[in-house]
């Protein structure tokens, strides 16, 4: 009886395959509450206060297409001299759709020589990343970059 044996083997394989797929799917898929553009705006307001934020001077190097949102290399640099009376005081980085809107605040001084900071960040979704620099004359300059994320961070299960 070769026919039934074949079909049962096929059935077994398909069952096993199905089980493997089921096993790979997290039991509870959790989607944390997203930071909203309003939260992004208020996080930025917390830093800049009432000051106007102009576009320019700041450069945000981040891959436009990210395969793994758990670790995304990011470099922020500010085209500004670092002299005693004209320097970058701080760099603030924000995101739009992670569970919370802050990424990091970096405080520099004139002695830094170059206003550039690199780190690795997490991105929970395709979104906008905003970097804002505060200069010694208390003006704020910003840049925003759109990033597409294939594998989101923060959502995976703890095993």
């Amino acid at each position: 009886m070769p026919q039934p044996r074949h079909s049962s083997r096929r059935q077994f394989l398909s069952l096993a395959g199905g089980a493997a797929v089921l096993g790979a799917v997290p039991v509870v898929t959790l989607r944390p509450a997203e930071a909203t553009p309003a939260m992004l705006a208020s996080a930025i307001r917390n830093v800049v206060g009432e000051a106007a934020v102009r576009t320019g001077k700041v450069k945000l190097d981040i891959p436009p297409l990210v395969e793994n949102g758990n670790t995304v290399p990011m470099t922020v640099s500010v085209a500004n001299p670092m002299t005693a009376d004209n320097y970058v005081k701080s760099i603030h980085v924000f995101n739009e759709k992670n569970p919370q809107p802050n990424i990091g605040n970096f405080y520099l001084g004139p002695h830094a020589g170059r206003a550039q900071v690199s780190t690795r960040i997490r991105l929970a979704d395709s979104q906008k990343v905003v970097a804002i620099a505060r200069l010694s004359d208390d003006t704020f300059w910003s840049v925003s970059v759109d990033v597409v994320v294939t594998l989101a961070a923060c959502t995976e299960e703890v095993i």
């Binding site: 758990n70 995101n95 992670n98 802050n102 990424i103 990091g104 830094a112 690795r120 997490r122």
Partner: peptide, 27 residues
């Protein structure tokens, strides 16, 4: 701190990846 003087400081949040890697410059 560089010879006792703070030259760089950072506030980190959950959005910083595991094993925080930070690079910066100084004179």
């Amino acid at each position: 701190r560089y010879n006792g003087t703070e030259i760089f400081r950072a506030d980190l949040f959950q959005a910083i990846a595991a094993n925080p890697f930070i690079t910066f410059f100084t004179t």
